[in-house]
């Protein structure tokens, strides 16, 4: 029950104060940048930028690194796969069927760095933006699409309700698990199929409860006059400031650098 990765880290830094829309757009730009980067220098620039952002957010580097832990397996796995299966380039090592080339090492390193950068960048977004600001930002960004029938408001509402209920359902999962364990259920041993079957006593009650909650929530929302996005106002108004413009400019500059290098 201690999933803290990417969860909002309350604060009042420059990054925290930026408009969520600006942050989302900058994050997207950075993700593009990550995929464009194809040289040691451009990666260096990206990492330097990421490091500067972390300092600006006033979140400790240690905390961010800790957040990387769960994906380390994927990073190493990608690294290994890329190293062994990239052909071409000068051969460095050859042992039985294993063959490592310099371009393999290069592709593998870049791939791994790419993943790490992606996680740092998206983590920074979610760490400095509350889920509500995030969904507000997404809704606002998608609003132009509403004119062609895209359900921007509904999507944002769904996201924020999902986030509201994640902790509730996590607590419930823990409770149901304990209750079934008290009836002798075993969630930990056995073959894969046995284990999948063993999840039923957990999943069925969990889904039944989620549906019941959804039903009741719908009724409660209706009782509070909810009738979709039309005619709705928001208490918190999003406002872009000079700060956001500056952030966007810096991100654009970085993107240009990465693209050229």
């Amino acid at each position: 029950m201690q999933i803290t990765i990417g969860q909002y880290f309350p604060g009042d830094s420059l990054l925290h104060r930026m408009d969520p829309r600006a942050k989302i757009l900058i994050t997207i730009a950075l993700i593009v940048g990550v995929f464009l980067a194809d040289s040691v220098l451009s990666y260096a620039a990206m990492f330097a930028f990421a490091f500067a952002m972390i300092r600006l957010s006033r979140i400790s580097v240690k905390y961010i690194v800790k957040g990387l832990k769960p994906i380390m397996f994927i990073v190493i796995f990608t690294f290994v796969i890329n190293m062994f299966f990239t052909t071409g380039g000068t051969e460095l090592v050859r042992w039985r069927f294993i063959r490592i080339t310099d371009s393999g090492v290069r592709a593998a390193s870049f791939m791994a760095l790419r993943l790490v950068l992606l996680v740092i960048v998206t983590q920074l977004l979610t760490l400095t933006t509350s889920s509500i600001a995030l969904t507000d930002g997404i809704e606002s960004l998608l609003k132009p699409l509403a004119r062609i029938g895209f359900p921007a408001h509904e999507l944002a509402m769904m996201m924020s309700i999902a986030m509201r209920f994640i902790p509730t359902l996590m607590e419930e999962t823990d409770k149901i698990m304990k209750a079934q364990m008290a009836r002798g259920a075993d969630f930990e041993s056995g073959s894969l199929i046995q284990r999948a079957r063993a999840m039923l006593p957990l999943l069925v009650p969990l889904f039944v409860s989620a549906f019941r909650r959804a039903d009741e929530l719908a009724l409660a929302m209706e009782a509070r006059c909810y009738r979709g996005g039309r005619g709705r106002t928001r208490m918190k108004q999003l406002r872009c400031t000079k700060l956001d413009a500056a952030g966007a400019a810096v991100a654009a500059a970085l993107l240009a650098v990465v693209a050229v290098l």
């Binding site: 509500i132 929302m221 106002t233």
Partner: peptide, 22 residues
């Protein structure tokens, strides 16, 4: 648990008023 919509208390209290277009 099943009647609070938002992840922050004040946002939840605002929900009905937002629906009314205040």
């Amino acid at each position: 648990d099943n009647q609070l919509v938002a992840t922050i208390v004040e946002e939840d209290v605002a929900f009905g008023l937002e629906n009314l277009g205040v």
